[in-house]
Design a protein around this nucleic acid. Structure first.
Length: 887
RNA sequence: GGGCGGAUAGCUCAGUUGGGAGAGCACUGGUUUUACAAGCCAGGGGUCACAGGUUCAAGCCCUGUUCCGCCUACCA
């Protein structure tokens, strides 16, 4: 009879349960961290703060799923956990969003003015800034929302200011005129790492520069950016270059401009490249700038902030760079200065926020001196105080840190932390103070002007692990949770963020901000391409949640998380894990139906009568607990998830549930039945606990429906591995029974016998030990295989027209008089025999090798010999069976 | 130019100190069975990129080669 439970549907519906339990956890305050001064018992993570303008993408989903797994797992292990959430003010991105918004009103930020504009951005932030936070909640993340932070919060701003001032006072922050990366669209300076080099097909232009006072002599230079010639102030050649010896010290006439520029020598010039003569544009090329400093050359800036030419470009004034390039080339061609154009592939810098081509641009900016700050940060990793996982990222970190350059931190934006520097308009004094100054200490003037620039957003992000905990105050949070336990992030921001946090943490808190950096992979689509809106291959996590549930998405992402750099995600994958959720749902449904009359409190554990299957599943569960916990400790999320998945589906559901049915279906309340119920409950509850960090909603829903103690699975203890539950003997025995069942199924399938067809079954067993084992556990075979009759014994003769299966020490006969096709059966057996023979040959080669016998460890030799014996036995029986057909 | 990573089943990838080549998906056949057809049962499919070396034994360690990614660098 089919047992039906009308109350529990056979398909899991995540929509009905997710919201309910998230609310429940919040009401119970489970996410809220407590102050606990026993630091060993604290486990803390700060979230990589998403941009306040952002909306949740699949990368966030992965990154935060992994953090949530750690937090939930550690919490169940008994730690006092803190997962501190927050958002990042994202200077350029946020300013862009609001600028676009006011553009719709036909206004620019200049129309509003600085103060009003910033107010508009705050309004925008209050209105939309929590979008991404609410999206995070949809995925069940257990962040401590009472500690939500924003990089522009008062406390965090104070930290920024304090850090700036200290670095300035120590001479580690300075202001200067340098060639920096300028984004003409964002109209701000960028740090070197904010420039993305993209290799493009371009041209190398050869331009003739006439030599002054000569009879038509010229020097030819090569350039990729011909328009910059308008700002040239010299031509440089290598001092040893014989070709140009005659020109050294002479003067060239800059075409189109008519400016007289010197021909200088510098060993920076590579004589092999181009013509070996380089045009020098100090204001728009870093190397040229350095060279100009060495040679004391004139510096001419030809660009405006918006990427158009300024008055220094003469007739080309107000033209945008590329228009200007065209015009310059035309003019050069017309006037006979353009010598040649070659195809040329090279890297061109683009703004990492808007993609616009970056112009090297001479301007006054603020910088942080990095070398000194980097040293202790390198040491911290070398000494193992910070560990990267996977460890290969340490090399990437070292490589960057050991070649670190000064960091340009000023941005010509309005949205961000204003640089805390005032200039006295009367005496020129520079004032850098914690509190806004009103008077110049030097001359007493009140005529002070604050620096208009703001700081790079990453400057405040660098302080995130301690500024969020209350630094510079000596707060309880800081005392309890700094340093944090682990940082989980992507490799794309190791330089931007991780390295800088390490430097700042060491510098200002004396301790690295985290003990471990776990680098999670990047998600690509099924074909391995990075997801992007323009490619149209994005998988939106919220759509996935809507369709398949949050748990399905989470367990998919966790299972795919390997130690590599990329993981391929597809909807097919998610469907597979949605099916897994349904499997869990149904095994629970089965359990709940069969535990209706079960009461944990009435169970007397020492009176239980455990069957072989009971001992086996307990041992397997124990193994799964050990393996999955070990994997989590090693941050192998995929392996941990897979271990639990396989245990749940392939062992618990596929085998144990079937084995337990006869006992569970007994009408009477026997000790056997109660034992079965207990084991079923015990295994299921522990499985749910193992799954909880990965799939919090479904596990809570089921746990609450099952007999349980405590108020939530979220705060229940993590399963513990216990040596005494390991039972290798039961595992070996069960495996033997299972392999008999598998072999019979195999024969039935090969012979096209449907599952429901009852068969006569003979098991001929040649060993006393095995005979006893099978006799005692024959009920498992009968549970799985429908039999008309079953005979187990020694010396059983093979009935005529039987299909045969051979295992170590066991022969299986299934008489199939009406069905069997002799030639097919012979072919089947011969195929098996061939396989055995080739295996046997390999082993013979080994065990007949003297060197193997003398040098391999004894246990390996014994293993091989045993295997050979088993295979020989199987081979012999297969041959006998074949003979019986051929007779 | 330098560095890092990768090459294992049709696809995407696991494979922890060297000792029986695995998973998911896809594919083929069977199957309405007292939880689940989003299920169950069974099956096919791999010279572990190539060439050497170390070893009794190599997907794993060493050397070289080819191909593919990524990061990085001032060759205009």
């Amino acid at each position: 009879m089919r047992k039906i439970n009308a109350e529990i549907p056979s398909v899991y519906n995540p929509k009905k349960v997710e919201e309910k339990w998230y609310k429940f956890w919040l009401e119970k305050d489970y996410f809220k961290a407590k102050h606990n001064h026993n630091k060993e018992n604290n486990f803390s993570i700060v979230i990589p703060p998403p941009n306040v303008t952002g909306s949740l993408h699949i990368g966030h989903a992965l990154n935060n799923t992994l953090q949530d797994i750690l937090i939930r797992w550690k919490k169940m292990e008994g730690y006092n956990t803190l997962w501190l959430p927050g958002t990042d003010h994202a200077g350029i991105a946020t300013q862009n969003v609001v600028e676009r918004e006011i553009a719709k009103e036909g206004k620019s930020r200049y129309d509003l003015g600085r103060e009003q504009f910033v107010e508009r951005v705050w309004e925008w932030k209050e209105k939309y800034g929590n979008n991404i936070i609410n999206q995070l909640k949809k995925l069940g993340f257990s962040c401590d929302w009472s500690r939500l932070r924003f990089t522009l919060d008062e406390g965090l701003s104070k930290a920024v200011r304090k850090v700036f001032i200290q670095l300035y006072k120590e001479g580690l922050i300075y202001r200067g005129n340098y060639v920096i990366n300028w984004c003409p669209r964002c109209q701000t300076a960028l740090a070197d790492i904010e420039v993305e080099s993209i290799e493009e097909d371009a041209n190398l232009y050869y331009i003739n520069y006439p030599i002054k006072d000569s009879k038509g002599e010229i020097i030819t230079v090569a350039t990729t950016r011909p328009e910059t010639m308008l700002g040239d102030t010299a031509v440089a050649v290598h001092p040893d270059d014989k070709r140009y010896k005659k020109f050294i010290g002479k003067t060239a006439i800059l075409p189109l401009m008519g400016r007289e520029i010197p021909i200088v020598t510098d060993s920076y010039v590579d004589p092999e490249f181009g013509t070996g003569a380089v045009k020098i544009t100090p204001a728009h090329d870093l190397n040229d700038f350095e060279l100009a400093k060495r040679q004391k050359l004139q510096v001419i800036n030809i660009l405006n902030n918006d990427g158009t030419m300024n008055e220094q470009a003469g007739n080309f004034k107000n033209l945008p760079v590329f228009k200007c390039r065209e015009r310059v080339l035309n003019e050069l061609r017309k006037k006979g200065f353009l010598n040649n154009i070659e195809d040329y592939k090279h890297s061109i810098g683009h703004c990492y926020r808007c993609g616009t081509i970056i112009e090297p641009y001479l301007s006054k900016q603020w910088f942080v001196k990095m070398k000194k700050i980097a040293e202790p940060a390198i040491l911290a990793v070398e000494e193992g105080r910070i560990e990267f996982t996977p460890s290969r990222w340490e090399k990437v970190y070292y490589d960057w840190m050991r070649n670190i350059k000064d960091w340009c931190i000023s941005r010509q934006l309005w949205w961000g932390h204003r640089i805390p520097v005032w200039y006295c308009q009367d005496c020129g004094e520079i004032i850098v103070e914690l509190e806004d100054p009103t008077i110049c200490k030097k001359c007493g003037s009140h005529n002070l002007l604050q620096d208009p620039d703001v700081l790079d957003t990453w400057f405040s992000s660098a302080l995130w692990p301690f500024s969020t905990l209350g630094w510079p105050e000596e707060s309880e949070d800081l005392k309890c949770f700094y340093p944090t336990s682990v940082l989980v992030t992507g490799f794309d921001i190791i330089f931007f963020w991780v390295a800088r946090m390490i430097m700042m943490g060491l510098k200002f808190c004396g301790d690295a901000p985290f003990k471990k950096v776990y680098i999670n992979p990047l998600i690509t689509d099924a074909e391995g391409r990075i997801m992007s809106k323009s490619k149209g291959n994005v998988i939106d996590p919220l759509t996935v949640v809507e369709e398949y549930g949050s748990d399905a998405l989470r367990i998919t992402l966790a299972s795919l998380t390997i130690q590599g750099n990329y993981i391929c995600l597809s909807e097919e994958r998610i469907k597979g894990f949605r099916n897994f959720a349904n499997k869990i749902w149904n095994v629970s449904r089965f359990s709940i139906m069969n535990l209706a009359d079960f009461n944990i409190d009435k169970i007397e554990k020492n009176k239980l009568k455990m069957t072989l299957a009971d001992k086996w599943i307990i041992s397997r569960l124990n193994e799964a607990i050990k393996k999955s916990t070990d994997y989590l400790n090693e941050y192998k999320f995929g392996e941990a998830a897979k271990t639990i998945y396989e245990f749940t589906w392939s062992e618990f559901c596929d085998w144990y549930i079937e084995f337990s049915k006869p006992k569970l279906y007994q009408e009477k309340d026997t000790i056997e039945k109660r034992t079965s119920q207990y084991i079923l409950w015990f295994v299921l509850e522990n499985t749910l606990k193992l799954l909880h960090p990965f799939m919090p909603f479904i596990t809570e829903e089921i746990w609450q429906k099952l007999p349980h103690k405590g108020e939530s699975i979220m705060v229940s203890p993590w399963p513990k591995y216990k040596e005494k539950y390991m039972n290798k003997d039961a595992e070996n025995k069960m495996e033997k029974i299972m392999s008999i069942i598998k072999t019979i199924r195999n024969i039935k399938s090969d012979m096209n016998i449907p599952y429901s067809k009852e068969i006569d079954l003979y098991l001929n067993v040649n060993e006393k030990y095995k005979l006893k084992l099978i006799e005692e556990n024959v009920n498992y075979i009968e549970t799985m295989i429908k039999t008309k009759s079953l005979e187990v014994g020694t010396g059983i003769k093979k009935p005529e027209y039987s299909a045969t299966g051979v295992l170590e020490g066991v022969e299986i006969f299934i008489p199939l008089k009406d069905i069997i096709n002799i030639s097919e059966e012979i072919a089947r057996l011969e195929k098996k025999l061939n396989k055995i023979n080739s295996e046997l040959n390999l082993i013979f080669k080994k065990i007949n090798n003297k060197d193997f016998l003398s040098r391999a460890p004894e246990e390996i030799v014994k293993k091989e010999r045993d295997k050979a014996d088993d295979l020989r036995d199987i081979k012999e029986r297969l041959e006998n069976n074949l003979k019986s057909f051929k007779r």
